Each structure stands twice: as C-alpha cells, then as structure tokens.
Simulated scan of single mutants.
Amino acid sequence: MENLLRLLIVLGGSAAVALAAVRAADLLARHADARHPETPLWGLLRRCRTPLYVVLFTALLGWTFRATGWAPLEDHAALVEHVLVLCLIGGGAWLAVRVAAAVVESSYARYAVRSRDAARLRRVRTQVTLIMRVVSVAVGVLAAAVALVTFPAFRTVGTSLLASAGIIGIVAGVAAQSTLGNLFAGFQIAFGDMVRLGDTVVVDGEWGVVDEVTLTFLTVRTWDERRVTLPVSYFTSRPFENWSRGGAEMTGTVFVACDHSVPVALMREHLREFLATCPTWDGRAWDLAVTDTSPTCVTVRALVTAKDADDLWTTRCAVREELVGWLSREHPGALPRVMTTQLDDAPRP
C-alpha cells in the first residue's frame, strides 16, 4: 500500500510540477504578447504548451520513478527508462517542430505587414510552406534515427549497415527516381518562383488557382471547386500558363456575331457607357471593332480589362449579356440571320 501511495505521489507530483511550469511559461508568453503586439511570435509560441508538457512530464518521471520503490517498476527499470527515453525523444521532436513553425510563421507575418507586393507575398508564402515541410521531415527522420540507436540491436549491426549504405543508396536511388525527381522539382518551384500559392494557372486545359504546394505534388482548385492534383515535376517538364506572373491584370475579348447592318458606332458608344457602370472593369482599356466578315454575318470583338482572372470572367460575361440584350431591344435587325430559300415543287420541263 505504501509503495502504491508513493507511485501515485510520484505521478501526481510530476504531473503537477510539469503543469505548473507549462502554466508559468504560458503566462509569460501571454504577457510578452501583450507587450509586443507588433510580432505574433509569443502568441504562436503558446501552441507549444502540449509538447512542452509532454517533455517536462516525461523528464520528471525519468528522474523520480525509482523513488516509488514499487517492485514491478524496479524489476523492469531498464524497460521503463527506455520507454521514457523514447517518449522524451518524440516529445522533443514535436516541440522542436512547433517552435520552428512559430518562428517561421512570425517572420512571415512581420514580412507580410511591411510588404505591399501581392506576388512577392505569394512567393514567400510558398517558400515558407515548403521550408516547414522540410523541417518537419528532417526533425522526424532525426528523431526516428535517435530512437533506433537506443535499441542495442541496432547499435550492434551499425557497422554492417554503414558498410552497405552505399549499395542501399544506389538501389534506393534507382527505385525512387520518380520520387526524388519530384522532391528536387519541389525545391525548384519553391525557390525558382515558377508557381506560388494563389497563382492562377492553366494546366491540361484546366483553369484554376494553386491551392496547395508540397515537396511532391501540387493541387489546383478549378473554377467549379474541383481539385486537380499534379506531381510538381509536371511544372518543370511541361509548358503551362501562369496568369499571375508579372501582375494579375488581364485583358479579355468578347465576340458577337451580327448582321451586316449592325450600327457599330452606336454599339461602341453603348459599350463605353455600360463599362462605366460595370464594377469589375478596372478602367485600363476597352475597344470594340469588327474583326471578321463572312457572306452571312460580321464578327464584332469587344476588348475589356480587369484586375484579375475572376473579375475578367465576370466582366466578359456581363458585356456579352449586355450587348446581346441591347441588340435585341434596340436593333433586332442587327442580329444574325439564317437565310433560307423555298424549294420550287413544280416539276421542271
């Protein structure tokens, strides 16, 4: 009974001390966040409370569990210490990733406040996302390696593993050639400024916005809310359209088939008046001209501009609807006609 009471005291005391330390650290971070609102670092560091508690609680148990005098723990002390070491390694890796994420996110937030260039912000955001993924993978691999070293069997065969590392590396490189290609392509996209989060792109005839970028794949959200997932090597080996490079402003056209009698001057004047009231037209440029003719109709092209692809699509649709409606109301004779002739049923001599 006494040993069981000691065990409860050790567990409860370790949990209470760890909780008190985490609570104190959280209060300090909250106080620093209130005194320094210009940086979100301290507020982001408060996300580290759970992994910090795991690390502290595990470390305290490693120091105090022998004081319980409980026979099952003493008989398996080596196993208990090994489990606690593994938990400490995992908690430390978790804490390291959270701290790194807080520092990186804080740096990006401070940069975003100072910068007014949307394209540069998307570029930095893409790089930050990929950097955090690399850091997470690196910390995870390092933690797994350290955890494996704690097993005596792995330490014993360490020499043979190192001796065969070259052969294994060659085999793995050949087997994972596609994966490694995507990995290096991900770095090229992140730091080569080819594609950024939020860019409007056209790939395989699909128009959409870059929604997610990882080290191996890229997701494009299409206009109808579908997600098209492509390997990042696609963007380094094939041509694609990036409508956000060099600025998001775009120019679009609307083609209307009309009769030869269409009043082009009046149509041009009506387009100018309509664009003055169109909220998605950015006011940079507009035009209306006859660009083609055929024996049955003429093709009138309206040219409009907008600040981005979404507004351009809306403007083009609005202009098309307005011109067709205006012709139907004011000049119905200017709409295209289908010429037909009546067959003569009378027999020919």
Rank of each mutant, 00 (worst) to 15 (best):
L95I: 09
V202Q: 02
V83W: 08
R316K: 15
S294E: 13
T299D: 04
R66V: 14
Y108C: 06
G169Y: 07
V83D: 00
E269T: 10
S14L: 11
T219E: 15
T296L: 14
P263G: 09
M250N: 07
W243F: 12
R114F: 10
V135Q: 05
Q127W: 06
A265L: 10
L60S: 10
V128G: 00
V202L: 04
W243L: 15
F274I: 01
V220F: 05
G333V: 06
E38D: 15
T222Q: 00
D292W: 06
R6G: 01
P37F: 04
V210D: 05
A176E: 13
H331Y: 09
T156F: 05
T64F: 12
P37Y: 01
L5Q: 08
C48D: 12
T314H: 08
A302F: 11
V139Y: 08
A20N: 03
T216I: 15
D26N: 13
R348H: 05
R329F: 03
G12D: 02
M132R: 15
R268P: 01
C297I: 09
A143S: 12
G13W: 10
R6E: 04
T251G: 05
V139W: 06
D345P: 06
G205E: 03
V97H: 05
G166R: 09
G186C: 13
R337I: 06
L41H: 04
A309D: 03
L180F: 14
V22L: 07
L312C: 04
A276E: 11
S237T: 14
A101Y: 14
Q177P: 00
A18V: 03
L183M: 12
T236K: 11
T219G: 03
F235P: 00
A144N: 09
E81C: 07
V55W: 09
A306I: 02
V209M: 12
D344E: 05
L41T: 08
L303K: 14
A119S: 10
L266G: 06
V103Y: 07
R47S: 14
L41K: 04
A67C: 14
A29K: 13
M194N: 08
A77S: 08
V213L: 10
P332F: 00
R98Y: 10
Y108T: 04
W94K: 10
M194K: 15
C48W: 06
V304K: 01
I131R: 13
G186N: 12
E321W: 02
L61V: 01
S136R: 10
G169T: 15
V290Q: 11
P72M: 12
W42G: 05
T277M: 09
A257F: 12
D33Y: 05
M250G: 10
C258F: 03
H82G: 12
E105F: 13
D282E: 02
D211R: 12
T156P: 00
G158Y: 05
T68R: 04
V104I: 14
L266K: 13
